[in-house]
Simulated scan of single mutants.
Amino acid sequence: MTATIAYDRAVSNLIDELSATGHVTHKSYRKTSVTLHHNGARLSHQGVLNVWKTRPASAHFDVDAAGAVAQYVKVNEYAWAVGDTAGNQSTISIEMANETLAPGWTITEATWKNAARLAGWHFAKVIGERPSRNNLFYHHHWSSTACAGPYMDKIYDKVLAAAQEAYDHFKDSHPAPGPHTEPFPGASFFQTGRKSPIVAAMHRRLVAEGCNRYQSSANSDVWGPGDVNSYAAFQRKLGLAGDDANGIPGKISWDKLQVPNV
């Protein structure tokens, strides 16, 4: 089963079920923005999937009326979401369930706040830039539609502020070491959000060797030097396996990096 993102909250996994419809383009792109949508109905996660089983459309995520998250498309892949080719290549699309239908198309606070939080996570862990008016969009940014609706237009500033707050929370966060985490000099610097010279050197090497190439070869879901999934893919490229390929820099990875022509 294709894994969901390494979010700090539960994510329902509907990736393979949507992929089976053929309404996903399995080609990876660098993501530079997040786009919010309303799904035009009071749909559950399964309800969204049922619509997309017959309608040729897709999006990366859905946030339901209670604020719960489901994933349908791998983050780096092309979703059939915004009605614009360049937009589908570059943006991460998040659907939101409606509380009411036309003409208001309101969305609960639990839904839009959790969508904004999810957007902030992607800006911190995937895109690498703080949310702003230049990269946090509604669907109508890309094509002629009212989506995400008049209610969301009125509260855009609140949504942006919530996404920025989430970004600030996530941008320096790192996973706590598990029982099999590799010990390495300067580990405390990494865990407190400060990069030791060793970690900085690892990141430079990741960039120099081509993080995208490592990511694609390992089917990693998140792009970017230093994030957990990309680093785990890099560790596997270096020949690590099992608990050693945990996405956390350590001595074993560092020793592997010393081998010429890795």
Rank of each mutant, 00 (worst) to 15 (best):
G22C: 09
V11G: 06
V75D: 08
H26K: 15
L14Q: 02
T91Q: 07
R9H: 11
A81R: 03
G224H: 01
A59N: 08
S253C: 13
G186Y: 01
V207R: 15
Y167C: 02
R130D: 07
I198G: 02
M1N: 10
E165N: 09
H26G: 08
S253Q: 12
G250T: 02
G67T: 02
V259F: 05
A208Q: 15
S144G: 11
Y29S: 05
A176Y: 10
P56Y: 06
Q164A: 09
K27S: 13
G210F: 04
H140E: 12
Y231I: 11
M202W: 12
K256E: 00
G149A: 05
N76M: 13
P249F: 05
S58L: 00
P260G: 10
V207C: 12
I155T: 06
A116W: 02
C211M: 13
E99C: 06
A148S: 15
H23Q: 09
F170V: 00
D168V: 03
V207M: 14
N219R: 10
A57D: 12
V262Y: 12
S33Y: 01
A70R: 03
F190P: 01
W112S: 07
F184E: 01
I248V: 12
Q71A: 07
E209L: 13
I198E: 04
Q89H: 11
S220M: 10
N134D: 15
K237Q: 13
A161W: 09
I15A: 02
N88E: 09
A116E: 03
L118N: 05
R194A: 13
D244W: 01
T25N: 14
L43W: 03
S217C: 10
E165A: 15
T25H: 12
Y78F: 14
R213P: 07
A119R: 03
P56Q: 05
V228K: 14
W254T: 00
K27I: 11
R133A: 14
P131Q: 03
L160N: 05
D16T: 11
W52K: 03
D244N: 08
C147H: 10
A166S: 12
A233S: 14
F61T: 01
A187E: 09
G40N: 05
G193R: 03
A119G: 09
Q164P: 02
S216L: 15
R130Q: 11
K53V: 03
I198K: 04
V159Y: 07
L49K: 03
S33P: 04
A102M: 11
R133Q: 13
I15D: 00
A162I: 05
P225C: 08
A163Y: 00
L136S: 05
F61P: 00
A41R: 10
Q258V: 00
S217H: 12
Y151D: 07
Y151T: 08
G226M: 00
F61N: 00
A86E: 15
A201N: 08
A110D: 13
A97H: 02
M152L: 15
V207S: 14
A162P: 03
A59I: 05
R42I: 09
E109Q: 15
